[in-house]
Write a protein that binds this DNA or RNA. Sequence first.
DNA 1: TAAGTCAATAGGCATT
DNA 2: AATGCCTATTGACTTA
Length: 237
Amino acid sequence: MEDDEPCITSLSLGLGMGGHVPRKEKEKQKQKLPSLDLTFEICPRGEQMIHVDQQQQQQLHDDKAKGLLCLKHPNENNSPESSNNSNNGTRKKLKLTKEQAATLEDIFKLHTTLNPAQKQALAEKLNLKHRQVEVWFQNRRARTKLKQTEVDCEFLKKCCEKLTDENLRLKKELQELRAQKIGPKPLYIQLSKATTLSICSSCEKELKPNEGKKGGITDVVQNSSHKLQNSVGVKGI
DNA sequence: TAAGTCAATAGGCATT
DNA sequence: AATGCCTATTGACTTA
């Protein structure tokens, strides 16, 4: 239970602080963030009272008495579903106005999650239901996550392609070196060739005395591994 | 009219 | 147990 205190809390829409708000921070924000002059009363059982501004508290008192402003749980009568289902069982799709969407987007840029009071304030401001604001933020987070997943996927694909290419190139190089080793030329010539090739073609650094010497498979793999590490930017494999 | 978009729903999980 | 969030899905509506 996040708001179990049945008290009036001042609204904080959280403008001015970016990023995700951890659960623990939510309560703090209620107190320290600028208020929109809207106040809320959290009713027992999670119902919420909304007070449009401080001067309307007296009016609220009257409305409260009349039961006009007490919002019920989203799954109860006041839900968009129930209000939309009024016409022969089909649910009508609500389209947010440009202004509503723009405001929601603006808030989302600052905060990807809102606390109940913030949702209620926003709902009041946009003439929407609390549940609608809640749903919008849920869907918006889902869309963001999906987009990010696509971006990550694309990045990994490119990484994979690069590594595949490099792998292919190294295999070819290995094949060539093997062919040289079993080729017609005397081994000592190849050895001398290997010793003269002491500059890494990838990073253009001079290889250690052992590297490139002998021209054996192990050394070739080490050399190739060295190049691969340079090309991929990996250290300390 | 098929495909895409997006508000809304349902169910599951974590937290308090 | 109540609540909020996430995820998958539905279904109304739009668009190419």
